[in-house]
Amino acid sequence: MADSIKKNVANAGNAVANAAKDVGSRIATGAEDAVDFVKEKTGMSGPDGGTDRGVSAIEDHMEVIASCGKKVGVVDHVEGNAIKLTKNDSRDGQHHFVPISWVSRVDRHVHLTKNSKETEENWKADAASCAR
């Protein structure tokens, strides 16, 4: 019986430690987002401001912003070397794809190296086309 109690206490301790790690990670991400938001809204970040998290941080539903500052879409999901944009935000009601290579940085948004005109003229109809 004592072994069972020790095991339960150890399991509870591990659960608390894992929960604390998760909460700490969420707080750090939230703090980073808050700093980026303030920098963006106050103009303190400059054109390349924000904490670049890299393309691996691209998440569904992030806004995709062209280099000129215009929103060109919302991430549906990442598919291979391409970002699939939602069709809800598309003027023609179709999914469009932009190559990962067009990404300049990722913070609260996905920022592209191309302006909105270049992006809309050159986005692809499928993910396979982005590999070329």
Rank of each mutant, 00 (worst) to 15 (best):
A2C: 01
D3Q: 13
D3K: 08
S4R: 12
K6Q: 14
K6P: 00
K7H: 09
K7E: 15
N8H: 09
N8C: 05
A10R: 05
N11H: 03
N11R: 07
A12P: 03
N14V: 07
A15P: 03
A15W: 08
V16T: 12
A19Q: 14
K21G: 14
D22Y: 06
V23L: 14
V23Y: 15
G24W: 04
R26V: 03
I27M: 14
A28I: 01
T29Q: 15
E32F: 00
E32R: 07
D33H: 08
D33M: 10
A34M: 10
A34N: 08
A34D: 14
D36F: 02
D36H: 04
D36E: 08
V38K: 05
K39T: 06
K39A: 13
T42V: 09
G43D: 15
G43S: 09
G46F: 01
P47D: 15
P47Q: 12
P47Y: 04
D48M: 09
G49S: 04
G49T: 02
G49N: 02
T51N: 13
D52Q: 06
D52S: 03
R53P: 10
R53H: 06
G54P: 14
G54N: 11
S56F: 03
S56M: 03
S56C: 01
E59R: 09
E63T: 02
V64G: 07
I65Y: 06
C68T: 12
C68M: 04
G69D: 10
G69S: 04
K70H: 11
K70E: 15
K71Y: 03
G73H: 03
G73R: 00
E79A: 07
E79P: 11
G80Q: 08
N81M: 07
A82E: 05
A82S: 04
I83G: 08
K84L: 08
L85I: 05
T86D: 15
T86Y: 00
K87R: 13
N88M: 09
D89H: 05
S90P: 08
D92G: 01
D92E: 15
G93E: 13
Q94A: 11
Q94M: 14
Q94W: 06
H96P: 08
I100W: 01
S101P: 00
S101D: 15
S101F: 00
W102N: 04
V103T: 11
R105P: 09
R108G: 14
H109E: 15
H111N: 14
T113D: 15
T113W: 04
K114R: 14
K114S: 09
N115M: 06
E118M: 06
E118C: 02
T119E: 02
N122R: 01
N122M: 02
A125K: 11
D126Q: 01
D126R: 00
A127S: 11
S129Q: 11
C130D: 10
A131K: 01
R132T: 07
